Amino acid sequence: MRGAVLEAIGADRPYAGSRPIQVQDLELDGPGHGEILVRIEAAGVCHSDLSVVNGNRPRPFPMLLGHEAAGIVEELGAGVDDLPLGQRVVMTFLPRCGACAGCQSNGKTPCGQGSASNTEGTLLGGTRRLSRTGEPVHHHLGVSAFATHAVVSRRSVVPVGPDVPAHIAALLGCALLTGGGAILNVAKPGPSARVAVVGLGGVGMAALITAVATGVEYVVGIDTLPAKLDAAKRLGAADAMTSATALGRGEKFDAVIEAAGHPRALEAAVALTKPGGITVTVGLPAPGQPASIDPLALTAEGRSIVGSYLGSAVPEHDIPIYAELWRSGQLAVEGLVSDTIPLEEINRAMDTLDGGHALRQIITFS
């Protein structure tokens, strides 16, 4: 197999020059008990990947990156009897053991075992199937999708129909689960609600198109980049503007989704939330970055702030919902794809993402 391995964290920018990610040949063991072998068809380049590269999310390395992907099942490990060979599957970046308190929370809190495995750079249950000249290579979020093939836990995938193209299916497993889930599972706005999304990257734009798809009449995109504001309008937003413009106009919203992953963005999202409204934060800032919130406004105005990891989703339940919304023509997932690239362009793709110029760059494999 061939994959993109992160060799160093916190390398100098631009990454196209320092090249912390190296595309190389690797050894991949066959699937063990409860695991499957997947041939990767498409993988999205997400900010969670960049957060490992720049050191905001420290992980063990060398690590084969990538967590948002779709592919074809090519081999089944012992104990897996519910997937046919040739099945297209969506990868999800938090496997669920199905037994812990997190798994019993209906998506509200993450799986404890899956979170521990992700931190350690293993598959669910502690195994590693990747190596290089006999030395182990760590898995990224139980997937490691920037590669031609991946061995993953059966609990890290959800099957989809063959009518869902690979580049669409890939985005259902992270961007839509996270951004869409903030709408469907947490904010739950009605058609007459006023909704704003702060931070129009892939996840934020997924929240926006999900709100539009579910019939919310007034959805506003908030960002600092004109190109992203234009994209929000193309994807169905009633309006798009900077947070300063929105605050200057006195705009207030029933639900505000914060997807920028920055303390100032969270502060703006809270300020844009009207009395009685809800602020949902799905962005992941660097550890230790404080935000300033007036607690009196929360109490006196009956407002709430809710954190949502992976969109508070149960992937096997939620992914079919997004697939069906896409089939019906209501969910404009295609609009999230800003570029299609080969695996060898991964360092340049990180620079593009770091500059805030991408929604989702999709790596395709021939």
Rank of each mutant, 00 (worst) to 15 (best):
M1T: 14
E7A: 07
G10F: 09
G10E: 11
A11D: 07
R13Q: 12
Y15N: 02
S18N: 05
P20R: 03
Q22K: 12
L26D: 08
E27R: 03
P31S: 10
V38S: 13
R39F: 10
G44K: 02
V45P: 01
C46Q: 00
V53Y: 08
G55R: 00
N56T: 04
P58M: 03
P60L: 00
L64P: 11
G66Q: 05
A69H: 06
A70T: 15
A70N: 14
G71I: 05
E75A: 15
L76H: 09
L76W: 01
A78V: 10
D82L: 04
P84M: 06
L94N: 12
C97R: 01
A99P: 00
Q104M: 08
N106F: 00
G112F: 00
G114D: 10
S115L: 11
S117G: 14
N118C: 09
E120M: 02
T122D: 13
L123E: 13
L124H: 12
G126Y: 08
T127Y: 01
R129M: 07
R129Y: 05
L130G: 09
H140K: 00
H140G: 04
V143D: 03
S153E: 02
S153H: 01
V157N: 02
V158M: 12
V158I: 11
P159E: 11
P159R: 08
P159M: 08
L171Y: 03
A175V: 05
T178F: 04
G180Y: 00
A182V: 10
K188V: 09
P189F: 04
P191T: 07
A196V: 11
V198W: 06
V198H: 03
A206L: 09
L208S: 10
A211D: 01
A213G: 15
G215S: 07
Y218S: 13
A231Q: 15
A232G: 06
L235E: 04
G236T: 10
D239Q: 15
S243L: 02
T245W: 03
G248A: 13
E251Q: 08
G277E: 04
I278G: 01
I278A: 07
P285D: 06
A286P: 06
G288M: 15
P295A: 13
A297W: 11
G302A: 09
G302K: 00
G302W: 04
S304A: 15
I305Y: 05
I305N: 11
S308W: 01
Y309V: 08
V314T: 10
P315D: 05
I319E: 10
A323M: 03
E324C: 03
L325W: 02
R327P: 06
Q330D: 11
L336R: 01
S338L: 05
I341Y: 07
E345R: 15
E345D: 15
M350I: 01
T352F: 11
G355Q: 14
G356N: 07
L359K: 06
I363Q: 02
T364A: 14
F365I: 14
F365D: 04
S366P: 12
